[in-house]
Design a protein around this nucleic acid. Sequence first.
DNA 1: CATGAATGAGGCTTCATTCAT
DNA 2: AATGAATGAAGCCTCATTCAT
Lengths: 230, 230, 230, 230
Amino acid sequence: MSSRRTAKQGSNRQVLREREIINAARLVFESTGFDSASMADIAARAGIVEGTVYLYFDSKKELMHRVVAEWYEGLIASVSNGLARVSGVRGRIRFCILRHLRVYVEDTGLANLMIRELRRDKKFYETEIYSLNKRYAAFMTAEILEGIKQGELNSDIAPDVVRDLIFGGIEHYAYRILSGRGGLDIDLAADRILGTLWAGIAAPKNTSQIALEDRIARLERMTLANSEKS
Amino acid sequence: MSSRRTAKQGSNRQVLREREIINAARLVFESTGFDSASMADIAARAGIVEGTVYLYFDSKKELMHRVVAEWYEGLIASVSNGLARVSGVRGRIRFCILRHLRVYVEDTGLANLMIRELRRDKKFYETEIYSLNKRYAAFMTAEILEGIKQGELNSDIAPDVVRDLIFGGIEHYAYRILSGRGGLDIDLAADRILGTLWAGIAAPKNTSQIALEDRIARLERMTLANSEKS
Amino acid sequence: MSSRRTAKQGSNRQVLREREIINAARLVFESTGFDSASMADIAARAGIVEGTVYLYFDSKKELMHRVVAEWYEGLIASVSNGLARVSGVRGRIRFCILRHLRVYVEDTGLANLMIRELRRDKKFYETEIYSLNKRYAAFMTAEILEGIKQGELNSDIAPDVVRDLIFGGIEHYAYRILSGRGGLDIDLAADRILGTLWAGIAAPKNTSQIALEDRIARLERMTLANSEKS
Amino acid sequence: MSSRRTAKQGSNRQVLREREIINAARLVFESTGFDSASMADIAARAGIVEGTVYLYFDSKKELMHRVVAEWYEGLIASVSNGLARVSGVRGRIRFCILRHLRVYVEDTGLANLMIRELRRDKKFYETEIYSLNKRYAAFMTAEILEGIKQGELNSDIAPDVVRDLIFGGIEHYAYRILSGRGGLDIDLAADRILGTLWAGIAAPKNTSQIALEDRIARLERMTLANSEKS
DNA sequence: CATGAATGAGGCTTCATTCAT
DNA sequence: AATGAATGAAGCCTCATTCAT
């Protein structure tokens, strides 16, 4: 539309400038959200004037989309690479949890932007962000399905519900911890979240397992006694 | 707080007027969010003029806080009343889940307001809303603790983690469903979420456990026979 | 839409303010056209700040429409009143011409605004201005039709074409004269335009015909003389 | 005028580039008018960048003037050539009308540009465009004068008034038709406009009048003969 | 108590024009 | 001769807040 917009494949300088703007915008969006962010702030932080931003992005909204998209792409790549080095269903799910926890430690602002601002848009489901979001979430779902297939996970569970519990749980957990202004130990967090979910919250029929061991021990003792007796 | 309000305990008429404004503001905030809401809209919907709003509230932000606070108080009362009629740990937790799901169905706008606008504020943790939020969340934590105490819940679990999984899971589940523009069957949702969490996601080792019990039982019978024989 | 907008039936003060803005806007629009006019100019000329204009008008475009509409209403009233005092087809058409010439003397800017800016709008034909324009033009058409009916005008003529010739002729004539920076003698202009056109649209009774009659009369006299001579 | 152009008579390449820019500018100005046209659009359509345009034209305004001037020159040449192939006063005037109607069909955008943007300029009457406009209008005036001289047109008429009626009538007629979004049948239009006007401006010469003149002439000859005889 | 007109600062966006390369 | 990135001023519009009545 904008005929002033330079070619997509710009010069090196253009690419750098674009990146500067995206970085500046990311900072501003992260700290204030979309509505409260001002193009003037963004421009100032990028060291340029407002008008220049519009040489690279058609609108504030497009800029936000680009910011989030770039971030998502990096995140997806990161997860993809990371998963390549982990094996075993539990380990891979734990990795996804850990990586997502890192998002809250490192990119809280962007995570919020994504969740609170973009999803509100009526046309969100037609955007690139939506498909990136789906690609990201798919990592977790895929592991859950694999787990079911391999018999490590209960075949009764609904993968979507599990995924929501995990992502939502991480979000609240991270929020809560971060709010307390304390640091977030993501390894511990991952273990607690996954651990709780893995075994369930119901009191274990496993106490019975302990009982079993007791009974076995008693049997052993009795059997031994019998042997000696005879 | 409000330097302009003539008296904390105003006349009956003042109280009514204040309520009208809060109700109007709630409608507007719900439908458009904080930034897009205008004091003019709010005043108009309350049947007064802008200036009058400022006789009752110092600023737009204070108004929003009051709106959310009133809503939270109602929510807390509702949960409190509701819980009084439910017994059993599982039933009470399920009730909390169900009630929270209803928030997303009935008060999506306010839930968003809470999450988007209020939490963003640096000073959120000093506000009245924060403590209301904690009071609300405490219902769930209390049930979990009670469950542990009564032996219905695994004593290993961390109540906070469980609560985060529940609230976060609900949030994501509700968002996902509502975004798909499909209606949200909150009873089904409650069952799925609680069910998944209750039993855990790990495949039950139970078949082999049952086998063990069988073998032990046989051993016990044999051993007993031996003992008696000798 | 704009809930800040005060009631249509405003206070006396509001009406005055509105008029001030319309007058200021008219001056600015007249001298620079729509695009080049700035709301800042208009506000300044009305002695208020830009924002205040928006308390009375939703947009620059609406303001222009109001300016033109008010002017048109006055013009229509003026023509209507004036025609009431003139009788005879020729006299009434001459009056319409004269009145329209006055528009170019007194309201050139607005005439231009009307013709050049408003008509360009795709939705012009749905606006109030369009119907006002039609009402105004209808005065002329009505007189032409009446003239035909009464036998004073040639029944062959197409009223629309005649009206276009008149309005268009006036416009060009007025422009040309005014451009020469000389004053426009509208009485003379009316006579010249109508005179030129009249001979064509009036039922024919040409001067040359009169001349012919003269020649015949002379012949008759001569012939008579001849007869008498012989 | 242009302080930047290196030489009035540039290289062949320069001339071509200038033409490209003018053509591009014409397209843009036609479709959007002056204010809404952007130099960026023009440059893009010419396949160059904005800065380059300023090597050939000092400003947007100068560029518009050049566009209109070039168009006017073409129009004048076209009329000049066309008239060379038409003879007879009526035919030649009809040709001028027809040609002008074509302007509204083919070059509406430019006609508007001329009327809306250029005429508004206070200094219009000092511009080249003004004299081109005069040259163009002169074709019509010349034919009218010729018509009077040859006795085909009534010697009473004021050529300027007639020309204004024609040009103005065409303009209004064309606008009205084009606005109705119906196509404009320019041959029919020319006939209706000229027809209506002709009967008025042509020296009267009805068939019956001609017959009368013939009979009178014969009578005069006979009478004269009789007179001389006697 | 209430009004509501007015403010003024700020928001996003556009673009003609310039200038270092 | 050409580039094209950058500017900076301007444009339209919104609105929380104030204050004289």
